[in-house]
Simulated assay, not measured.
Amino acid sequence: MTSKILLGTTALAAILLSTGAQAADEGLKLKLGGFFQGFAMIGNVDRNDGVDNFRNVSFESWNSEIWFTAEAETANGLKYGFRIELEGASVADQIDESYLWVSGSFGRVMFGNDDGVGNSMAYQIPTVTRSKSLRIEDQDYAPTANINGSHLLTAFNSPNHYALDASKLAYTTPRLAGFQFGVSYAPDLSEDPGTAAPGTAVAGGFETDNDNQAGDALEFGLNYNNKFGDLGLIASVTYYHDQLEDGAAATSADRQSVAAGAGITYKGFSFGANYMWTDNYRSAGYGNAGRKNVDLNQFLVGAQYVTGPWSFGANAGWGVADGKSNAAAGNSEDKLFAGLVGVGYNLAPGIELEAGVQYYDWSSDINAREADATVGLVGTTLSF
């Protein structure tokens, strides 16, 4: 009897293992991707505080990445994978996004260092060129580092991009009739263990809760994406909220933000706009707490047209950071207007040649914070 049970159990195990082997996929397979961007910036920055010791030409090639990705799918339709992005230059944030994900009929779960749904599900305006290198939203090649650092609004960030790549857990539902909902949570606005800066992650322990940073970042997103023949409609509303940590300075406060946007696509044409309001605004950054009594209103608009190898586009933005009730901010209302036009040409698969002209105007109640800049861009984006 024992031998028969053992024989039957062994046979059953063999059948189960055989079935499992037949049903299982081939597992994760590593893929490489990424891009390299090289641009020449040519122009001038004029500051009202008299600081003008800047060159008129700059070669920019720091924004390049290598992506390590893998994904697989089981016989029952469960998909899973990971993504790690390595910066192509020696920067503080050497590893950009790094996360794992699982998706199926239940939706998608992400765990790791990636944008929260307040940003990832928000509508972002069309970029100027097809490669997305030329844009004013989260712009990489602009003279924003050359203006007076006290200005409350130095550049235009994409909606609710305050938690950036802090470690978080996110869930998004399946898309139903064009609609999708998501939620994400980050206990601490920190990333990259082993650095000395406050608000950074730790390895094998708990982050500090008394360094005047922020945490408990909760985000919600709702978007719509559907096509009706050649016409595509996209819209979104997203929300972000974080809380001060223990021992926060009196000049800081909990931050909340709401963003809404919408756009259309028709054949090679795309057009859209988004708006963001933030209470207790401070420019995006890992762990930065909100600045008390500073409100932000930001409006961006963009258009792009693609025909054959050519892409043409324009972006414009206007924003005001109202810090009149904040003495530490100079009781000032700071404004920013910016515009960018450009053209791209797809020379060969993975090679995009691009050129554009951008204009920035920073105004303020405080004369020394005012500045303007006109900059030309010529370069290329290689992607694989």
Rank of each mutant, 00 (worst) to 15 (best):
Y286G: 00
A250F: 07
F179H: 00
Q37D: 14
V45I: 14
E370Q: 14
E354W: 15
F39K: 08
G77N: 07
G344A: 10
G77K: 02
Y281S: 11
G118M: 05
V343Y: 06
A368Y: 01
K132E: 04
A92G: 06
L86Y: 04
F54S: 06
G104R: 01
E354I: 15
S103G: 13
I15K: 07
G34C: 11
G81P: 11
V91F: 02
A21N: 11
K335A: 14
D211P: 01
N48C: 08
G356E: 13
K267A: 07
G342P: 10
K79N: 14
L6M: 07
L30C: 04
A75I: 12
M110P: 00
T380A: 15
S58T: 15
L78M: 14
S325L: 00
D279S: 11
A177V: 05
S363F: 05
G112E: 03
V183F: 07
A11Q: 08
P198N: 13
Y266V: 12
P159W: 09
L340W: 04
A155I: 09
G290F: 08
V357H: 00
A11P: 00
S105L: 09
A186W: 01
E333Q: 11
A142E: 10
Q139M: 13
G232I: 00
P198V: 07
N293G: 06
G261M: 01
A373Y: 07
F156N: 12
T172C: 08
Y266Q: 12
D25V: 14
E87C: 01
F39R: 06
G27P: 11
L78K: 02
A321G: 14
D246A: 15
N146K: 02
T251N: 06
T265H: 07
F54D: 15
Y359G: 10
T144L: 02
T129K: 09
G376S: 15
Q180S: 05
S257V: 06
T19A: 04
L16A: 07
T19N: 10
Y239R: 01
G323A: 12
N157L: 02
T278Q: 12
E191H: 09
I147A: 04
Q298S: 15
A249H: 03
E26T: 15
V102K: 00
A338N: 12
F269Q: 10
T2V: 03
T19W: 11
F206S: 13
H161S: 09
V102L: 13
P309S: 05
E245M: 09
G43R: 11
D49N: 12
A170R: 00
K79L: 10
V128N: 00
G81Q: 12
F271D: 04
L347Y: 15
F82C: 06
L336I: 14
N280M: 03
A177K: 04
V45F: 08
V202Q: 09
D165W: 03
T69F: 07
H151R: 05
G77C: 04
K132W: 11
N274D: 14
A122D: 03
S90Y: 06
L382T: 09
N56Y: 10
I95W: 02
